[in-house]
């Protein structure tokens, strides 16, 4: 394999703006202290007039923020997390999409399986039989009006519903409204937390109103997941302004007044596995670069020590190699202490 040159296009970024604090490298004696440091600092910044939505906490992997999320909840700081489950990937939204997909492409066996299996009393074998029969029939707009005698009642109801929303002149929003009526009882039976999930369906309905054809609606939704699921956003705050938690990958191209990069701990960031491969290690470095270049005014790079790594059996305590041993003139070194 050819070795990748590291940085072929050398550049040195500069600004004409004056002033600014040096980035802080913050060490905390354990993970929880790191979390509480971030919570306290975020609240201080908020008191100084920085909007919560103009502050971001960035991390290498989604799980690294779990402890922080608990502390934020305790302190009643509302936040949005990016880089987790997407709206479109949630099961209930996928159910709804499946109905639209079979109207658009009646050969879509994946979608058929999904919606047939939602019906009480229909298992994989029945679904398979129905599917084979369906594919053997003549496609076209009368497909759902065909003769479906001999089918269980519940399946016939599905076909009637689909036949009803087939006509081209119906707007996607109207089709979705009919489908929701059909789907509602199935939805409630399937998901215990249906009340929380219902907001997503409402949002889905709202999105469909912008569209004139099911085809373009489907293409857009599958190609460009629109937004995070509402049920992922917690806790519900009265102020609509929220702190941003994000993986570095999802923070690409964005910027905030103040940025925290957490778990800049060697073995976590860079990930312990990256050590085996030089290209992977350089990509980790670029990730750190991307994370730190998101900050406009304040940058805090923090790491906990005494973190036990199950996989290797090592106790992780060193700062990330990308920030370790930085010239003193470039940074402020902080230690988190308890009162």
């Amino acid at each position: 394999m050819v070795k990748t040159p590291r940085h072929k296009f050398h550049k040195e970024l500069f600004t004409h703006r004056g002033g600014g604090e040096r980035p802080a490298i913050v060490v905390a004696h354990d993970e929880n202290l790191q979390s509480r440091f971030i919570v306290q600092r975020v609240l201080e910044l908020r008191e100084q007039g920085v909007a919560l939505s103009d502050i971001a906490v960035l991390f290498r992997s989604s799980y690294l923020s779990f402890d922080l999320e608990i502390e934020l909840n305790k302190a009643n700081v509302p936040f949005t997390k990016f880089g987790g489950f997407k709206f479109i990937e949630t099961a209930h939204v996928k159910d709804l999409l499946a109905y639209l997909r079979v109207i658009e492409n009646p050969r879509d066996a994946v979608a058929w399986n999904r919606i047939l299996l939602l019906i009480d009393g229909v298992g994989p074998r029945t679904a398979e039989t129905i599917l084979t029969d369906l594919l053997a029939r003549k496609p076209g707009k009368n497909l759902f009006r065909d003769d479906w005698r001999g089918y269980p009642d519940r399946v016939r109801t599905l076909f009637e519903t689909l036949g009803g929303v087939m006509p081209e002149h119906l707007a996607p929003a109207d089709k979705v409204a009919s489908l929701l009526l059909y789907y509602d009882p199935l939805f409630k039976r399937r998901y215990e937390d249906f009340n929380k999930r219902r907001k997503d369906l409402e949002m889905f309905q709202q999105i469909t109103e912008r569209y004139r054809s099911v085809g373009s609606l489907l293409a857009d939704l599958t190609l460009e997941p629109v937004t995070e699921s509402i049920s992922d956003i917690s806790p519900p705050g009265t102020e609509d302004e929220k702190l941003v938690l994000s993986t570095i990958h999802s923070a690409k191209g964005l910027e905030w007044h103040s940025v925290f990069v957490l778990y800049a701990l060697d073995g976590r960031f860079p990930n312990i596995r990256a050590a085996q491969n030089e290209d992977a290690m350089e990509e980790e470095r670029r990730l750190m670069y991307v994370a730190c270049t998101r900050a406009k005014e304040n940058l805090f790079v923090s790491y906990p020590i005494n973190v036990y790594d199950r996989e290797s059996g090592l106790l992780l305590s060193k700062p990330s190699r990308f920030i370790a041993g930085m010239p003193e003139s470039l940074i402020d070194a902080w230690v988190v202490d308890e009162e």
């Binding site: 040195e12 970024l13 500069f14 600004t15 600014g20 604090e21 040096r22 730190c292 270049t293 920030i323």
Partner: peptide, 24 residues
């Protein structure tokens, strides 16, 4: 090459430039 930055303060840029410099 576009090198003039309109986002960050110079201390942040010095720091991020250093992250890259050490890779080379």
């Amino acid at each position: 090459k576009l090198e003039e930055n309109y986002r960050s303060t110079q201390p942040i840029l010095d720091f991020t430039n250093e992250i890259l410099r050490r890779a080379r």
